[in-house]
Simulated assay, not measured.
Amino acid sequence: MACISYLIVDSTVRSKGTGQQIEEYASRAARRRNCGNIQVHCHLRRIDAHRFYNRQGYSESPKYFTKLL
């Protein structure tokens, strides 16, 4: 599995294809490494980002656990 830890595009250049280019590059790199899937963490409050990932073909699988230390 490949994982995108953070994908953040500056608000001044959003909706210009930058995020799409970065995500597609990451997907190509994951395929070259024979990864079966790619996962990205996206906080609940990032509604616009959720729409972006849906357009890119991601499906939601909301099962994360966090332990504060």
Results as ranks from 00 to 15, higher is better:
E24C: 09
A30Q: 02
Y25P: 00
K63R: 10
A2N: 06
A49Y: 00
L68P: 06
R28P: 10
Y64R: 10
A49D: 11
I38E: 03
H50L: 01
R55W: 05
V13N: 07
R51S: 07
S59C: 06
E24L: 08
H43D: 14
A2F: 04
K63D: 15
A30L: 05
F52T: 00
L68V: 13
Q20I: 09
S15D: 12
T18Q: 11
N37F: 10
A2M: 01
N34P: 02
L7V: 01
K63L: 12
L69D: 06
V40K: 11
N54R: 11
A49L: 02
L7S: 06
E24T: 03
L69G: 02
L44Y: 08
D10A: 09
K63P: 01
N37H: 08
G19I: 01
F65W: 12
A26R: 00
T18S: 09
L68W: 08
V9N: 03
V9E: 06
E23T: 15
R33G: 02
C3H: 10
I38V: 02
I4S: 07
F65P: 02
S27T: 13
R28T: 15
A49S: 13
T66C: 09
E24V: 04
A26H: 06
Q56A: 13
R14S: 01
T66Q: 14
Y58S: 08
R46C: 00
V13E: 12
P62F: 00
Y6R: 12
S15R: 15
Y53N: 02
